Computed example of a mutant assay.
Amino acid sequence: MTYQDVFVEFWKQVKGSIENQTFAKLTMAKTIGKPELKNIFLRPIYDKDDFKVMLKYSFRPREVEDIEEELTLEESLTIVKSHLKTHFLSVILFSTVKDVTFKVNNKGMGSISESHPTFKNVIQA
């Protein structure tokens, strides 16, 4: 299975955690090379009728200020997908139920693994 197919399965888990209001954070990690962009984080913004995320670009040189923007989940998906396998090789979903890690290996194959939750509570952006 290609990494794109596995990522679709991973993103279903992201959506499920949002629907269950257990989504705590999403982090893109394991950079390719030594880029200035160190991480991309998504934090939840739960509203009565809507769900958005605060997307944060974190940079390596301390002189470069982090960038934050409020987006819909679909808008954030576009950004996450555009950085996958170009800047980052893994995406970690932190929920209050479990942590789910999506990874792309050197051969372009994707995998999903699960572990105990890091977060006990959801902290909104």
Rank of each mutant, 00 (worst) to 15 (best):
Y46R: 05
F88H: 02
E36L: 11
L42V: 08
D66Q: 08
K48Y: 15
A24T: 04
A24P: 12
P61H: 15
N20I: 02
N121F: 13
F102N: 13
E63S: 14
V8F: 09
D50R: 12
V97F: 06
E69A: 04
G108N: 08
T27W: 02
Y46F: 15
V80K: 00
F88K: 00
K34D: 07
V104I: 15
I18Q: 05
V122W: 06
K107S: 14
F88W: 09
I112Q: 08
V14F: 00
V53T: 07
D66V: 05
N39P: 03
T96W: 07
I18D: 06
N20C: 05
T2G: 06
E68L: 11
F41Q: 03
N39R: 12
Q21R: 12
A29R: 13
H83K: 15
F41T: 04
F10R: 00
L93D: 00
M28R: 02
E19R: 15
E9M: 05
T2Q: 07
L93A: 01
P117S: 10
K103A: 12
E69H: 04
L55I: 05
Y57M: 06
Y46E: 10
Q21F: 02
V97L: 10
V122G: 02
W11G: 01
T118E: 14
H83L: 11
Q21N: 05
A24R: 02
S95R: 13
E114H: 10
E74F: 09
I67F: 10
D50C: 08
L73Q: 06
L37G: 06
E114T: 14
V91Q: 11
T101A: 11
L71Y: 04
K81T: 14
T22K: 05
E75A: 12
E74P: 08
S58T: 08
E74N: 10
Y57W: 07
S90L: 10
K81M: 14
P117T: 02
T101E: 10
F7I: 03
T86A: 05
L84R: 01
K120R: 15
S58D: 13
L26K: 00
E74S: 13
I123K: 14
E75P: 09
H83W: 07
S115P: 02
P44E: 07
H116M: 12
F88Q: 01
K98F: 02
V8S: 12
V14P: 00
K103S: 15
T101H: 03
D99N: 15
V64T: 13
L42K: 05
H116E: 14
M28T: 13
Y57I: 06
Y3S: 04
A125R: 05
E19Y: 09
F51D: 02
F59K: 09
M28S: 15
S17K: 01
V53H: 02
L77K: 13
K56Y: 05
V14C: 00
R60Q: 08
Q4H: 10
V6K: 09
N20W: 03
Q21P: 01
I112Y: 09
N121L: 12
P44V: 08
L89N: 13
A29I: 09
I45Y: 07
I18Y: 04
S90C: 13
M1G: 13
Q21V: 06
S111F: 01
M109F: 11
V97D: 06
A125S: 14
V104L: 08
R62D: 04
S95A: 13
V64A: 09
G108Y: 02
V91A: 15
T72D: 00
L55C: 05
S111C: 03
V6W: 00
